[in-house]
Amino acid sequence: MTTTRTVRVLLADDEHLIRGALAALLALEDDLVVVAEAATGPEALAMARAHHPDVVVLDLQMPGADGVSVATSLRTELPDCRTMIVTGHGRPGHLKRALAAGVRAFVPKTVSARQLAGIIRTVHAGSRYVDPELAADAISAGDSPLTVREAEVLELAADGAPVAEIAERASLSQGTVRNYLSAAASKLGAENRHAAVRLARERGWV
């Protein structure tokens, strides 16, 4: 009689209702066990260090550090831990950043619990999964001229947040934020950061 190895999962999402629902649904799977949950990027890192999960399911946008930043850190600190992103913000630029950070799967939050469980198993087995529609959008968007940090700061500026707030959320100085915003606008040929955000979003780079 063969036994299936249990896959240890860490869930990180700042929306408590979504995280709780995912945990409850995954608990119905015999071979999956949620060993920890986190609501912020730093908390996700701390929980991963403490529990050494097999697969970390990360929301893309979280307080403290986004999912790609967490995945980048885990790739170095816990190389045997595989990461995947589940997001409601599946733009081509996000996908490319995630893949560059070693993320093994990138899926929209519209997937069913059964699909998500299957993708977790796929990732644990060493394979990759990218939502086909997101992959097609990424190919058509072309390569972004923005660096990872420029794209991150530009996205934080998308809702009109002041430089001071962007600096705090990105853990950067206000001068550095201004430099990134200026560089992004210059690369995109935009007259200001608001136009840069619009252009970058139209092209799927943020």
Rank of each mutant, 00 (worst) to 15 (best):
T2R: 08
T4R: 11
R8H: 07
V9R: 00
L10P: 02
L11P: 02
D13C: 00
D13N: 04
H16I: 14
H16Q: 15
R19Y: 03
R19G: 03
L25S: 13
L25D: 12
E29M: 10
L32C: 01
V33M: 02
E37G: 15
A38F: 11
T40F: 07
G41L: 03
E43A: 15
A44N: 04
A44K: 02
A44V: 06
A44G: 07
L45H: 06
A48F: 06
A48G: 10
A50R: 12
H52T: 09
P53F: 11
D54N: 06
V56G: 08
L58N: 10
D59K: 02
D59H: 03
P63V: 11
P63A: 11
A65K: 14
V68Y: 04
V70I: 05
T72E: 13
L74H: 07
T76A: 15
E77P: 03
C81Y: 07
G88W: 01
G93E: 04
L95W: 03
A98M: 05
L99K: 04
L99M: 07
V103H: 01
A105K: 03
F106V: 04
F106R: 05
V107G: 10
K109Y: 12
V111C: 06
Q115H: 11
I119G: 02
H124W: 12
G126Q: 15
V130F: 10
D131F: 13
E133Q: 15
A136S: 14
A136D: 14
A138K: 06
I139C: 08
S140P: 02
S140F: 08
A141F: 05
G142F: 09
D143K: 15
S144I: 13
L146Y: 05
E150F: 12
V153K: 14
E155V: 11
A157T: 06
A158N: 07
A158E: 12
D159F: 15
G160E: 00
A161T: 10
I166C: 08
I166R: 08
I166H: 08
A170V: 03
Q174N: 00
Q174V: 00
T176A: 01
V177H: 05
N179C: 00
N179F: 01
Y180M: 06
L181H: 06
L181R: 06
A183M: 00
A184E: 06
A184C: 07
A185D: 04
S186R: 15
K187N: 13
L188M: 09
N192I: 10
H194G: 01
A196E: 13
V197D: 10
V197Q: 10
R198D: 13
A200S: 13
G204W: 01
G204H: 04
G204R: 04
G204S: 07
